[in-house]
Design a protein around this nucleic acid. Structure first.
Length: 439
RNA sequence: CGGGGCGUAGCGCAGUCUGGUAGCGCAACGGUCUGGGGGACCGUAGGUCGUAGGUUCAAAUCCUAUCGCCCCGACCA
């Protein structure tokens, strides 16, 4: 993409309404613009990141054996009356009336809807278990939306739902998602800590929140130092190996981790210098809640003995749009964003230091074509203008690599490759740069 | 929902107290000089001062109402 043609309205100054760093940087980098309180438009750069994150989440859901589908944003109130939540949910639920005066709502979550679908279409124990997910926009009419997309009213969420015959099956499903979440956040370049959570109004018996560590996080978390060095990526983790799954979950959950009022002073003292106190942002939440909805909504299957059984369920959320902000909170410096390569909107920013120099521009054009052809995502700053502006914009946008080409270097046959994260610079030949980026 | 604050050019702000030609910086546009970390100079364009009503010879400024946005708290992916 040529920057001269790209719609990316960057700002030099901080908009006053943005109080936290991710919000400021997202506005300044031209990723989002506010439509109204807690509701945002995603401009091209921001939307690219959103889709990248979504894709990582999707791949890990699929890997864990979960099947993607898509449910609507607008739901019928009757469905929620069945579960009893239409009255329970309160003013956070955006209620809508259609032209026939029917009560509708913009879904804040989809338990009722998926339960209805499963109830109507699955009748036999032979079809169990089922793990289903979708990635869809939600709306919760927060009293006080804030911090940009971190706490918006409209947000993109991955929500998955598990259906099992019995509690042992439900536990196995829970474990899958638990491991899946650890992997997902690692791929996103984040340190995630699972914290045992209140099950809250959604009900149930087993629940963990996943918090990513960032200095600007909303809640303070006390946890065992081993979380910081833990690496669960282990590609050989087999989701179908129940013992492995349970062992992994047991291992991780045996380590102390708690937030806010759940923190325990004595335990923390006993940890000594193994205690890490950091701030965290909740980006995922998993629940196992038994038959809460299936009982209320009559979702049963016939067992081998012909008796009908209420299904055991869980639901598993990841705040996809919140993650965009969360990643920035966890990864930035005073100059701007530092994208992990897995979600960067482009892999490399190609900077033409002197667009009115024929040789320099043809070298840049050439390399831009070669890289693009090789499948490398390049944002090419081909604008006329001063070097400082280009460096500043590129640092702000935060692409992992900057490839800087100017007449001075070209004379001696070198270009400069800068790593945004480490600020390391190498002076190398064009071919070496190409090989390194395309390799 | 309780408490506080702010709406003036795309962004950041001054002007409001004490009514009298709507301003500054950045960004934008045209030009000259420049050219490796947000450069300089010259010029241009851009505003029903959130909205509605009122007071007044005269309202960004005073009064009333209303809408929007932000912050702190309680609540949450």
């Amino acid at each position: 993409m040529r920057l001269s043609q790209y719609f990316i309205p960057t700002l030099k100054e901080n908009p006053t309404e943005a109080q936290i760093v991710s919000h400021r940087l997202m506005l300044r980098a031209g990723m989002i613009r506010q439509a109204s309180a807690g509701i945002y438009s995603w401009l091209p750069l921001g939307y690219r990141v959103l889709k990248k994150i979504e894709q990582v989440v999707r791949e890990e859901q699929d890997r864990a054996g979960c099947q993607e589908m898509l449910m609507p944003t607008i739901q019928s109130a009757d469905l929620w009356r069945e579960s009893g939540r239409y009255d329970d949910y309160g003013p956070e639920m955006l209620r809508i009336r259609d032209r026939h005066d029917r009560d509708m709502l913009f879904g804040p979550t989809n338990e009722e809807q998926i339960t209805q679908i499963v109830r109507d279409n699955i009748k036999s124990y032979k079809d169990m278990p089922k793990l289903l997910y979708h990635i869809q926009w939600k709306f919760r009419d927060e009293v006080r939306p804030r911090f940009g997309v971190m706490r918006g009213r409209e947000f993109l969420m991955k929500d998955a739902y598990s259906f099992d015959l019995d509690s042992a099956g439900a536990r196995r499903s829970y474990n899958r998602f638990f491991v899946c979440y650890m992997r997902t956040f690692e791929r996103l370049g984040l340190k995630a800590v699972p914290v045992r959570a209140d099950t809250g109004p959604i009900g149930g018996n087993l629940s963990h929140e996943f918090l990513i560590l960032a200095d600007t996080g909303e809640s303070e978390i006390g946890c065992h130092a081993d979380f910081i060095d833990m690496d669960l990526r282990g590609a050989d983790l087999d989701y179908d190996n129940e013992d492995d799954m349970q062992r992994t979950v047991d291992h991780v959950t045996s380590l102390y981790a708690a937030v806010d009022e759940q923190r325990d002073e004595e335990t923390e003292k006993s940890l000594g210098d193994k205690l890490k106190v950091q701030r965290g942002i909740e980006v995922g939440h998993i629940f196992s809640f038994g038959t809460k909805y299936t009982a209320a909504m009559g979702a049963v299957v016939n067992g081998p003995d012909g008796e009908s059984t209420e299904l055991e369920c869980g639901s598993y959320g990841i705040g996809v749009s919140r993650l965009v902000a969360g990643i920035i909170e966890a990864s930035h410096d005073e100059n701007g964003i530092i994208w992990p390569e897995s979600v960067a909107p482009f892999k490399v920013g190609l900077i033409n230091l002197k667009a009115n120099d024929e040789d320099c521009t043809s070298a840049c054009d050439d390399l831009y074509k070669r890289l693009t052809k090789a499948g490398v995502e390049v944002l090419y700053d081909d604008r006329e203008g001063r070097a400082g502006v280009k460096f500043a914009d590129m640092d702000l946008i935060g692409l992992p690599w900057q490839l800087i080409i100017g007449p001075r270097g070209l004379k001696s046959g070198v270009v400069e490759l800068k790593n945004r994260q480490s600020s390391e610079r190498q002076e190398i030949s064009i071919d070496e740069a190409f090989a390194q980026l395309a390799g």
